[in-house]
Design a protein around this nucleic acid. Structure first.
Lengths: 96, 96
DNA sequence: ATAGTATTTAGATAGTTGTCTAAATGTCGA
DNA sequence: TCGACATTTAGACAACTATCTAAATACTAT
């Protein structure tokens, strides 16, 4: 997981909103598009950035593409954030 | 605390490094400058952004300016991050 | 006051980013 | 295969950002 790409991904409000939306459950690009006032092309751009950061997974289902959170990476991100921002971080394991 | 300013502040690697440096303890602008390969002017710019986000405090001491983490805001930021990224967030208090 | 040190502000610039429109790709059903 | 639908890719553009140099401000000591 590349730190920089994750932080960059989270720096945009639309992307954070997408994340919150997906926390409720997976959704197709089209379903997400209905909730945002930007073009589908722009949204697609955001998906790419988040995929590159490892935050999202995509999976084609017929003509639709379903996006969902990559929960395992989200856990890592949480730890990363806590490390940066000061808390002791709920260490689950010692090393690997 | 303005969400967007905080996330933006954290999106830059130099600023995150400054944060880590200050976690070890307060430092003057000059002391910090010695650890980074950019000009003091650029560093000052970063300080401004982090101050605006509420992450840093500054305090003049003679000709030096001492920077330190604003720990209370850092706690809020941690909660913010966890909220976004999925963990239940160690809720300390109910409302105020 | 003056000189010296620490830091910031101002202004410029190259690179990055979010958005758009238009075109391309992929998939399904007839 | 054809047309319709869902989504992405390509290319362009304005706005933003990290950095720089040069100049200004703030403080200390002589």
């Amino acid at each position: 997981m590349a730190q920089q790409s994750v932080f960059k991904a989270l720096a945009d409000p639309t992307r954070r909103e997408i994340l919150r939306e997906l926390k409720k459950g997976s959704a197709t690009a089209g379903e997400l598009a209905e909730k945002f006032p930007i073009t589908r092309a722009s949204l697609s751009h955001h998906f790419n950035i988040m995929k590159a950061a490892g935050l999202l997974r995509d999976q084609r289902r017929g003509q639709h593409i379903v996006y969902s959170l990559n929960t395992s990476v989200m856990e890592e991100v949480a730890a990363l954030m806590l490390d940066l921002v000061g808390k002791p971080a709920s260490r689950r394991r010692k090393k690997t």
